[in-house]
């Protein structure tokens, strides 16, 4: 019990002295980070359901355009690249936040949000093009399952952008000091998850089943 006095300091300075290690939890992982991982594990099954429904219905459309009629690989490859690069800027923001470089953190966060927004803009363009080519949400079973799946992903990206913008505004008001770098990290986890989901969707939906 000799380390009782240490207790206060450990807690108050936890993020300072022991980056990534919370001494006030049983495992050393902070609540927020563990909670986020648990949520992401759960989200895998949400996307899994939409992906498997898409796969099951692939090739069953009774009318209207099929995937090979509307899917534009070069365009989507570009937006895939954009989303991938947003993961890089995100991880650079996290790394800068842990070093306490607030200005650089902010810049990388803004870059991430812009790249994410470009991805969403690309998705809007893709959807409108498909609609002009005759594939609406209700046109056939391919349209429904394709738009639902990619739309759900798009909603996740949009939520991520909002979270990033909140982080940026917090940073401008000086509310993201080094001690709070973990907030950036936890939101970063969400952002990377959205990226890995897109890695799966891009390969399975666009490349294999085009």
């Amino acid at each position: 019990m000799s380390d009782v006095a240490l207790g206060h300091d450990l807690h108050a300075e936890s993020h300072h002295d022991y980056p990534g290690l919370s001494p006030d939890t049983s495992t050393g992982i902070s609540h927020s980070k563990l909670g986020m991982w648990i949520f992401l594990a759960s989200d895998c099954l949400l996307f899994g359901a939409f992906i498997s429904a898409y796969l099951m219905y692939n090739g069953r459309a009774q009318r209207g355009p099929t995937p090979s009629d509307v899917i534009n690989i070069p365009f989507t490859s570009t937006s895939t690249f954009v989303l991938l690069m947003s993961s890089l800027t995100m991880v650079l923001a996290v790394s800068a936040a842990h070093r306490g470089e607030e200005r650089r953190t902010r810049l990388w966060l803004i870059a991430t949000a812009i790249l994410g927004a470009s991805f969403i803009a690309g998705q809007v363009y893709e959807f409108t093009t498909m609609y002009r080519e005759g594939l609406g949400y209700t046109t056939n079973i391919f349209g429904s399952s394709f738009f639902s799946l990619t739309g759900f992903h798009g909603v996740h990206v949009t939520v991520g952008i909002i979270l990033l913008l909140i982080l940026v505004s917090m940073s401008f008001r000086g509310r993201l000091p080094k001690a709070k770098a973990e907030v950036v990290e936890v939101i970063g986890l969400y952002w990377h998850f959205v990226d890995v989901v897109w890695i799966v969707i891009f390969t399975v939906v666009y490349l294999i089943h085009k």
Binding site: A53, R60, Q62, Y137, T138, N140, I141, G143, S144
Partner: peptide, 16 residues
């Protein structure tokens, strides 16, 4: 919204 996930006439499978 008129999606076709369970619309059998559109090729959907009720077992989904």
């Amino acid at each position: 919204f008129g999606a076709n996930y369970f619309e059998v006439s559109q090729g959907a499978d009720p077992l989904l």
